[in-house]
Simulated scan of single mutants.
Amino acid sequence: MSRYAMETARWIRHATMDDFEAIMPVYAYARKRMAETGNPRQWGDKYPLPERIREDIAGGHTMLLVDDAAGMDQIPEDPAYPEPELDEHKGSHERIIGVFALFHDPEPDYKVIDGSWLDDRPYTTIHRVAASGLGRHAAGDLLDWSMRRYENIRADTGLKNYAMQHILETHGFTRCGNIIMPENKEIENVRVAYQRHDRPLDLAERERAAKHLVAV
């Protein structure tokens, strides 16, 4: 592999507590971009709180999309690189391109939905997706990586987060309705819920999904 390819290739790894200080500015950048694009209430000024980030890392939930291009004099804006795969090594000139949290237990806030999930089978949840602004297509890479590993995925995003809604829908996620997050005066508590799975729906699931799509 050439030096160029090595430096621009991306990979996925679990975050450790050593990454905490590098993760904080990524979420700060994401909050700033949300506010600039008319979505200031999804995360407000503080979400996710430092204790939430530490808890995600400690539980092995936080995943990082990284490259090793920090030492390059000129970093290509949109290089061609292979699909990122899981690789737990830390680059010597590493940059965080994106971050998200991955959970395999049922999400308590998804029990009640104004709408209907595609099914009630076990699922993986994606939370707290953020890009650092250092590379393009971060959210898409994270979703693609997750979709290659898990057949049933749920996620939610803000009512005004049209960019993330577009990314989810172009990656085959179905808009299932709205959910209510715990009351927090600093952020909005209504979120748009999405689900995607790669197995065929049975008849009852197809009918439920069709009814919801008509209602939406």
Results as ranks from 00 to 15, higher is better:
Asn178Thr: 14
Glu36Pro: 03
Gln74Ala: 09
Pro76Arg: 10
Asp198Lys: 09
Ala215Asp: 10
Asp114Arg: 14
Leu168Lys: 08
Cys176Phe: 13
Asn189Cys: 12
Leu102Trp: 11
Asp56Asn: 14
Tyr29Arg: 12
Val192Lys: 07
Trp43Asp: 13
Ala193Trp: 04
Leu213Lys: 15
Arg128Trp: 07
Leu203His: 15
Asp202His: 14
Met17Glu: 04
Met24Gln: 04
Pro122Ile: 03
Asp45Gly: 07
Met34Gly: 04
Tyr4Leu: 05
Asp67Pro: 09
Tyr27Asp: 04
Pro76Trp: 12
Glu85Cys: 00
Thr125Arg: 10
Met181Gln: 06
Arg148Val: 03
Asp18Ala: 14
Ile23Asn: 00
Thr62Pro: 07
Arg196Lys: 10
Ser146Gln: 12
Leu159Gly: 04
Ala35Gln: 07
Gly60Trp: 08
Glu188Thr: 07
Trp117Cys: 05
Asp120Trp: 09
Ala69Thr: 03
Thr157Arg: 09
Glu21Ile: 10
Pro40Cys: 02
Arg52Ile: 13
Arg52Gln: 13
Asp198His: 11
Ile153Glu: 10
Gln165Tyr: 12
Thr8Cys: 01
Arg149Tyr: 01
Lys90Asp: 03
Arg199Asn: 11
Leu142Asn: 01
Pro84Trp: 00
Glu83Pro: 01
Met17Tyr: 00
Gly135Ser: 01
Ala210Gln: 15
His93Gly: 06
Ala138Gln: 02
His93Thr: 06
Ala28Lys: 06
Thr157Lys: 11
Pro76Ser: 12
Ile23Cys: 03
Ala139Cys: 15
Ile167Asn: 02
Ala193Asp: 02
Arg121Ala: 07
Gly135Glu: 00
Asn161Ser: 05
Lys211Phe: 15
Gly98Val: 00
Cys176Leu: 13
Phe103Ser: 08
Arg154Lys: 05
Arg121Cys: 05
Arg136Asn: 09
Lys111Trp: 13
Ser2Ala: 13
Ile167His: 02
His14Asn: 05
Val129Arg: 01
Ala80Ile: 07
Ala9Gln: 03
Arg128Glu: 07
Asp87Met: 02
Glu88Leu: 00
Gly60Tyr: 08
Pro76Asn: 11
Arg3Thr: 08
Met1Leu: 12
Gly135Asp: 00
Leu49Met: 06
Gly38Phe: 13
Leu213Tyr: 15
